[in-house]
Design a protein around this nucleic acid. Structure first.
Lengths: 358, 358
DNA sequence: GCTTGATCCGGTAACGTTACCGGGTGTGTG
DNA sequence: CACACACCCGGTAACGTTACCGGATCAAGC
């Protein structure tokens, strides 16, 4: 209260000011060395750096963000929620959560959607997006070749981009946030290895219109087969590709398969369309173990009923949320970002689904 | 550039200032209504509230935290890492992460530890903690009765406390962050139901010195048994309580059990001591399926070897981290907090453990 | 009529950081 | 010798919010 004169000297200034005081320079100079801005004598730069090290200075992120009230625009490009599966609702929610959080700090998020079954729609939306010249991009690729071309364009335009859900190896994105698909296939195989007897067959089901381009399905299958190979399991592994995604076609394909192979005991569906398979399996007169991907409402219904036994899930909402946030941190406060973030591989059953955080 | 006079009027002020301008009051007044401080005419309060609603005003959290540079002290009280299990390393790391994050904003974290096997050490540390008069407390209870007494003291002293890992039902904590133990027991049972044949027996293993007080073990067991009961499974369920926690005693207890019951096929250990059981099971001449709790190094080694088949895990690090952060948000910016946060129930296997985020 | 106190409200410093503006010093050029 | 132009650095407004200080108004009590 009284000795305010003395106190002024004694009290620890914090942050940049304390550094400035100790180095006998102005805070502007300290700021210059922190951000490596030009126009500094090497000697003073060194002096300040030394003190920064000594104090183990950590910038106050709140002050920084408050000061940097710059405006920028982030664009997102993901598949649209399709009639057949609601998977992309999750990422969309993640984008919207992140958007709400950062919109008050001067960032805006523009969302673009493409049809996962149509290359043309992808190209159209990609071009639209590029025309809007965003400052950053979150991108969930589906079509390999076209996606590579697209991100190369982004790079030329100097637009940093973050990939989610599926990586484009070889390209240099700002970051990748998503699953390790190979490992998730192996996990499925591992689980199944507990569940099969000697003579049981296993059926792999791929459901997608553009199979060649759905790279991630193949990777999962590869991880799956790889597990059985390396563990010298010799169960029969069957496979069916269903390229027409309406319920009837799916049912037809499966019916044929089950007629020809009566000892199918486990069915592994490589994407979120597993609910369609569940609808078929439910009507069967014997129990088969059913496994598939993704925490979407259609699937959860069958988890509750016990028709689907396991779902493998990769936090789709969180992926997108983290993607936008990564972009924001990069643009807003030039935070160093993690190059690759593999999402955990979660196993969902009837007993734990209600505690799952997407 | 030029028309700065006009611009001043046109440009959207943001936040509190814009509200003040529209309501024709000062920003101080707006602040008063936002924080429901006394000394306001009802009419002006209403007027301002209306505009806040209209603008859907969200306070800028960075500005708020910057402004509130108040100092406070958070205390934590958790079991010390024991010789037998490194489980509590996880929460400790979580506390330290949170501590590092908030220490730059004027919060300090003081850590207290007690011996999970000794009521006396708990009481001693609890008293020490109370003497330091912290502003908030993160508490992982073990001994039911003593813990209840302790939190009641906290309440009298006006110290808000957050519970983690294990709840104290009936007491009014600021929040609970942890698992739903009952459900995790059911999940274990569900997994096991896939793995057993008709005549297989299941062995439940409780390892703890103070069994009566280890409420959570009992809850898990209850959830486990409940699953089998409601699903009318009629496998034999055996159980052994081991109250001496050294490796030899554990081995001895198990050996007796396995001699008497040759058809034990699945072993379910209700806590992180499963690695001790693994050491025994490994030497057996036949494969049993082993299941237990917690992502700790000892257990992961056996996961890698394939001796432990499944671990159930509840993000111990994140629990503690969230606990400290909840306290911080409550104290620093009087943020509304979630009363109960159930952690997801994660299933760890050899295939996915490397992607697990604690 | 003057004081007292209550009620309501405005002004403003401060939180730590950023980035712009401009001032001082020195070296080279005409 | 004056002038220009680097080069180096300090001063300071601003970001949105909080909380303290004190001013204005009005009614009640002497």
């Amino acid at each position: 209260m009284k000795s305010s004169n003395n106190a002024k000297k004694e009290q620890q200034l914090s942050g940049i000011k304390e550094i400035a005081r100790r180095a006998n320079v102005s805070i502007a100079t300290v700021d210059r060395v922190i951000h490596d801005r030009p126009g500094l004598a090497p000697s003073t730069k060194e002096k300040v750096l030394k003190i920064i090290k000594e104090l183990n200075y950590q910038p106050n992120i709140h002050a920084r963000r408050l000061s940097l009230a710059k405006q920028f625009r982030i664009a997102t490009l993901i598949p649209v929620r399709s009639k057949e599966t609601s998977f992309w609702e999750g990422p969309l929610k993640g984008i919207e959560m992140a958007s709400a959080e950062i919109s008050q700090y001067g960032a805006t998020v523009e969302k673009f959607f493409y049809d996962q079954e149509s290359v043309a729609s992808f190209q159209q939306q990609a071009n639209l997006l590029l025309k809007s010249k965003p400052d950053g991009l979150l991108f969930a690729p589906a079509f390999m070749d076209e996606s590579v071309l697209f991100v190369q364009k982004c790079q030329k335009l100097g637009i940093p981009y973050v990939l989610m859900d599926s990586d484009l190896p070889g390209e240099n994105s700002l970051a990748y946030i998503g699953p390790n698909q190979n490992a998730s296939g192996s996990l499925a195989a591992h689980l199944i290895s507990y569940l099969v007897e000697k003579d049981d067959s296993i059926l792999i089901v791929n459901i997608s219109k553009e199979l060649d381009d759905q790279h991630h399905l193949l990777k999962k299958e590869e991880g799956f087969r790889n597990y059985f190979r390396t563990h010298r399991w010799d169960n029969q592994i069957l496979k069916i590709n269903i390229s027409k995604t309406d319920p009837k076609s799916i049912e037809k394909g499966l019916a044929g398969m089950f007629k020809d192979h009566p000892n199918i005991r486990v069915v592994f569906v490589t994407n979120s369309r597993v609910s369609n398979v569940a609808a078929f399996v439910e009507k069967l007169d014997r129990k088969v173990i059913l496994m598939g991907y993704d925490f979407v409402n259609e699937n959860i219904e069958y988890i509750e009923k016990g028709v689907i036994d396991f779902l493998i899930c990769q936090k789709p909402l969180e992926q997108a949320y983290k993607g936008v946030m990564t972009l924001y941190q990069h643009l807003a406060i030039s935070f160093p970002v993690k190059k690759v973030t593999f999402m955990p591989i979660d196993i969902i059953t009837r007993e734990n689904y209600s505690f799952y955080n997407y």
